[in-house]
Amino acid sequence: MKTGIGVFIAAVAAIGLSWCGLVLGPQLQLGGEGITTVLNSTDEYPLQPTGAENLGQQVYRANGCAACHTEQVRQTGVTCELTLTSLGVYKAADFTAFARSLFVLPELAKYTNALADAINGWNGDMPKTILTTPDKTIVEEMANRLKAVGVKFDLRILATGPDISRGWGSRQSVAADYLYAQPVQLGNLRAGPDLANVGVRKPDMNWQLIHLYAPKAVDSSSTMPPFRYLFELRKIGSTPSPDALKLPSEFAPAQGYEVVPTTDAKNLAAYLASLKATVPLYEAPFTPVIAAKP
């Protein structure tokens, strides 16, 4: 470090290394990523957004929505759930006796208490969850034994974590979810809730529009600022606009006026309603609820 050239070489080496690792590396690994398929299916994912949804994303960007909202769900683990759906020819008491006979199995040792709690005093109500564990092999072992005696059951894999318990998604977000996002705005603050699956929770465009115009009209505890500048307050002409918002009386405009969403507001609502990552993928597996209970 006595000479300028030493400092220069050290700095170039350090920055160059991190450039290769965190710019070039990810680009080589993920830059060529294309459309993938849904787990156990031939459906393609993600779907190409519509024009309005793409324009809505630009409204999302322009107004800095990502300053308060994230678009990513985190997951802490997975859990496997074994649920009985039919005992076939057996009665509940038969099954309880059968399950108790399994307690001697060494691999089940850790779960005998939970199993006993689940089946003690069970009157045969279906469906009945008898085993919940993050260990897939145990559940599969149990499933094989149940299959052998002709008991019908559902084996489900569920993602776990606070984000998922809050209903913000059914699995963690993965790189494939953002293939069509431009720009990708993951956000870094949750002053408001996560939006990765807001289209699942609130698919209704009118709800989205009213929420943008007056958040308190649909959620009294909301801290979101209203975005009235995305709407036009105007005198009702010869016929009221079909787009006019149907607002609760305390948020409604004066008599003879109507609130009409601008194109920006409509596009933004379309974008928000389109945000859903509901399908299982290879890197983020789970058993969709709809498939399990048709």
Binding site: L22, V23, L179, Q182, P183, V184
Partner: peptide, 14 residues
């Protein structure tokens, strides 16, 4: 010619 998908976010963090 921006990179597709989440690479954008990674470069942004870097």
């Amino acid at each position: 010619q921006v990179p597709r998908g989440v690479v954008q976010a990674i470069i942004g963090w870097w």
